[in-house]
């Protein structure tokens, strides 16, 4: 066995925005019909089931919409295995799949002025980064240059970027490059 590790200690780039590796997080994939497992899931996790393209959070755990029949639960890395087991038990009678996927993906945190955050992401994704299309509280799965990713707003106004861990180095490079001070465009306004 290897110890779980991230590049949290070494990834930090300060430019138009600050790019950081968010560090280890528990990530639990939840698949099933909302009508069948929503109640049991919400009770176990302690969070309301998010609406389409939304994230619910209590600051400690977050529940993010992934698709019509998929949610992602973000929690402490150390509690993920236990929480996944309890979720599986709570939804055992339904047609559902609960899996601790903490090792599958990497999270980045981008902090800075909102306009700069929108600008950095707009260089990498075809998604509309204007406020009306990507308001606070929204999660958007999209394409980041050549790979799939997800972006959403955290409660504190920072931006989370998620990608598969297998392409984390690539996405880290993309984010730092797009945040380079010399690449300022100034399209978005605060």
């Amino acid at each position: 066995m290897f110890d779980a590790a991230t590049t949290k200690e070494t990834t930090r780039f300060e430019g138009l925005v600050t790019v950081e590796d968010t560090g280890l997080a528990g990530m639990i994939t939840i698949r099933g019909a909302r009508s069948e497992i929503g109640g049991a899931m919400s009770d176990t996790v302690g969070l309301p089931v998010p609406e389409t393209l939304r994230v619910t959070t209590d600051g400690r755990r977050s529940l993010a919409w992934m698709s019509p029949d998929e949610l992602m639960l973000f929690c402490g890395h150390e509690e993920a295995a236990d929480l996944a087991a309890r979720l599986a038990e709570a939804t055992a009678r339904a047609h559902a799949l609960i899996l601790d996927m903490s090792d599958a993906r990497t999270l980045f945190t981008l902090t800075g002025a909102e306009a700069s955050l929108r600008e950095v992401l707009a260089k990498l994704t075809p998604a509309d980064m204007r406020t009306q299309a990507f308001p606070r509280g929204m999660i958007r799965r999209t394409r980041l240059a050549q790979v799939s990713g997800a972006i959403w707003w955290a409660d504190d106004g920072s931006l989370r970027v998620m990608c598969f861990r297998s392409v984390a180095d690539y996405v880290r490079g993309l984010l730092c490059h797009a945040a380079h001070p010399a690449s300022w465009v100034g399209h978005f306004r605060d």
Partner: peptide
Amino acid sequence: PYCGVRADETEL
């Protein structure tokens, strides 16, 4: 039609 996202051709 499932998530309401206005997706670019390159996301599809």
